[in-house]
């Protein structure tokens, strides 16, 4: 699914060269849930930006879903981001002027779906996160947890194969953090590969696999840690369940 070989990234300014990643190697298989930890400044974010095609890299090879990513044009990489990758940020990064439906619709717009298809997908995605009833609300009218769920819906709307989450629970209290985490696990269960950067060991432990980045390199590599995690909700929340119920749980 994702394969990085000897990736390095150097930031240059007039005075200094900073090696954000050096000879970075990582293989992630389809359907995995990978947690990435590491001290701040270790290169976690750089890794995520490169993995998400938001930044180029200085050296090495990167294959995503069999496609060679090095030297892709901006249009191509935008298309890949749009179709294959979903992003979830610590700060939610919802567009404040757009209501929930419009926020979720954004990636679909860029994909060029027609109005009907967009509507269907927005509806579906918001149902998945249990916020279909609040479609017309503005982000500012929601709690942090709800906002993050909208962000997840936005990431899901394009039905990506691959979800990148950067401290998705960093701005949430523990209760909301748990809910978001559960949601991610459900999504993973349904087949989406997830890479999550976090500095919370508690959360990291819930992933199938943990990697640690130190000084721009993969340092620790744990496969199938434990392997016997319990999954509290065995299925995805779907439209068949009452959204209003979900609302209450979330708020």
């Amino acid at each position: 699914m994702l394969s990085m070989k000897n990736i390095s990234k150097v930031f240059k300014t007039d005075l200094v060269e900073t090696h954000a990643l050096r000879e970075f190697n990582l293989e992630v298989n389809e359907g995995e849930f990978v947690a990435v930890t590491g001290p701040s400044g270790s290169g976690k974010t750089t890794f995520l930006n490169i993995a998400g095609l938001l930044e180029g890299f200085t050296q090495g090879d990167y294959f995503l879903d069999g496609v060679n990513i090095s030297n892709l044009s901006d249009n191509k990489s935008a298309a890949i981001r749009n179709e294959k990758i979903g992003f979830i940020f610590q700060g939610f990064n919802l567009i404040p002027d757009l209501n929930l439906a419009e926020n979720v619709e954004v990636p679909l717009r860029y994909r060029g779906f027609n109005a009907k298809e967009r509507k269907r997908r927005v509806q579906h995605a918001l149902e998945q996160v249990g916020l279909a009833a609040r479609m017309k609300h503005l982000p500012s009218q929601l709690s942090g947890g709800q906002q993050q769920r909208v962000a997840i819906a936005r990431a899901l709307a394009g039905e990506p194969r691959f979800l990148l989450a950067d401290e998705p629970t960093g701005n949430l209290d523990s209760m909301m953090a748990r809910q978001v985490m559960e949601l991610l696990e459900e999504i993973n269960k349904a087949g989406t590969t997830i890479i999550m950067v976090t500095h919370d060991p508690e959360l990291a432990r819930r992933a199938q696999r943990n990697i640690q980045i130190v000084d721009g390199q993969v340092c620790d590599f744990t496969m199938y840690q434990g392997g016997e995690r319990t999954i509290e909700k065995p299925h995805l929340v779907t439209g068949s369940q009452e959204p209003s119920n979900q609302d209450k749980v979330a708020s």
Binding site: N82, E83, F87, P107
Partner: peptide, 16 residues
């Protein structure tokens, strides 16, 4: 710029 960052991440190309 922040909003545009989000749009870019979500898959908007520079052209768009």
């Amino acid at each position: 710029a922040p909003e545009i960052g989000v749009r870019r991440a979500i898959g908007a190309s520079q052209t768009q």
